[in-house]
C-alpha cells in the first residue's frame, strides 16, 4: 500500500505538480524542482508532453542527473533542437502557444503574485533601494507568468514565504485580485495552482484569492494555516490529496537519479 511508502515532502510536491500537467501539452520548465516535476509528468502520465526550456532546448530529457542549469550539457546531450530565448520565451510563450509553465517562488502572496527579486526590511517605499537580500530576479518566470496558458507556482510552505503581499512583484499572478489581472490584457491566464511542501492552493473564482484546495497525508489544515501569512480560507470541497503511488514514486526517482528531492 502506498501508506507504507517512504517519500519526502519535496517528492510529494514534485509529484503533485506533475499531476497538474496533462498529456500532449506544450510545457516550459525552469531549472531544478520545476524541471523534475515536468520530466516526472512526462515519464509518468504525459508521454506526449512537448517540453522546452526558456533558453530554447527542445525535446530533451536529462542525461546523468539533474541539470545544473538550462543550458547544461546534461540536457544538451539529448536535445532535438537548440534555438534561443527569443524563440522559446517569445515565439512559443509570449505568443500564447505554450499551455503550461512551472515556476518557483521565494515569496508568493494571496493573489499568486511571485517575488524572486529580493527581500526588503519592510515596504520598499517611494524611493527604490537595494534589497536586504538580493535574490535571482525574474528570469523567464515573468514571461511565463504573462504568456503561458496557465502556470503552477512551486514553493516551500513557510510563513515568511506565504505573505499577504509580496515585497516586489517579479512575476504577476492576479495582481490585486478580482479582474485586476484581466484588465492588464495578458495573453496568459494566470496561476492555476500553488503547490507547496504541505498541500495545494487554488484561486477562488471571482476574488482570485488563493484558498486551500487540499493537504498532503502528512499535513493538515491547521498546519497549513499556521504556515501561511494571510488568513487562508479553506475551499468547501478541500480534501486530502492522494499519496504517491508506487509507480509515481518509481517514475519520479528515475528522473531524479541524483536524489536531489530525497534530501529531507
Amino acid at each position: 500500500m502506498s501508506a507504507a511508502l517512504d517519500y519526502t515532502r519535496q517528492e510529494m510536491m514534485a509529484i503533485a505538480t506533475g499531476r497538474e500537467i496533462r498529456d500532449g501539452e506544450l510545457a516550459i520548465f525552469g531549472v531544478g524542482l520545476s524541471m523534475l516535476a515536468g520530466f516526472f509528468a512526462q515519464a509518468n502520465h504525459a508521454p506526449n508532453l512537448r517540453s522546452m526550456t526558456e533558453g530554447g532546448v527542445y525535446g530533451a530529457t536529462p542525461v546523468g542527473g539533474l541539470p545544473w542549469g538550462i543550458e547544461c550539457n546534461r540536457l544538451a546531450a539529448n536535445a532535438t533542437s537548440f534555438t534561443s530565448a527569443l524563440d522559446a520565451l517569445g515565439f512559443l510563450v509570449a505568443s500564447g502557444r505554450c499551455d503550461v509553465g512551472v515556476i518557483g517562488a521565494a515569496q508568493v502572496d494571496k493573489f499568486g503574485n511571485v517575488n524572486t527579486t529580493g527581500i526588503w526590511d519592510g515596504d520598499i517605499g517611494p524611493h527604490y533601494r537595494p534589497p536586504k537580500t538580493r535574490l535571482p530576479g525574474a528570469g523567464g518566470a515573468n514571461d511565463i507568468a504573462c504568456g503561458a496558458g496557465r502556470f503552477i507556482v512551486m514553493a516551500s510552505h513557510e510563513r515568511k514565504r506565504f505573505t499577504n503581499k509580496v515585497d516586489y512583484i517579479s512575476s504577476p499572478g492576479y495582481l490585486d485580485g478580482g479582474d485586476s489581472r484581466a484588465r492588464k490584457g495578458f495573453v496568459g491566464g494566470g496561476p492555476s495552482a500553488i503547490v507547496t511542501t504541505l498541500g495545494i492552493l487554488r484561486p477562488e473564482p471571482g476574488t482570485r484569492e488563493f484558498v486551500l484546495d487540499g493537504w498532503f497525508a502528512f499535513s493538515s489544515v491547521d498546519e497549513i494555516k499556521a504556515h501561511t501569512g494571510w488568513d487562508l480560507r479553506v475551499a468547501p470541497d478541500a480534501r486530502e490529496i492522494p499519496e504517491p503511488t508506487a509507480t509515481e514514486l518509481a517514475n519520479l526517482r528515475r528522473v531524479d537519479e541524483t536524489g536531489a528531492l530525497r534530501k529531507k
Binding site: A94, N113, T117, A138, N142, D143, C146, G147, Y168, I169, S170, S171, P172, L175, R181, K184, F186, V187
Partner: peptide
C-alpha cells in the same frame, strides 16, 4: 512590451 508590464519590473 507585453511582458514585464503590470509588475515591479
Amino acid at each position: 512590451a507585453t511582458v514585464n508590464i503590470g509588475s515591479d519590473l
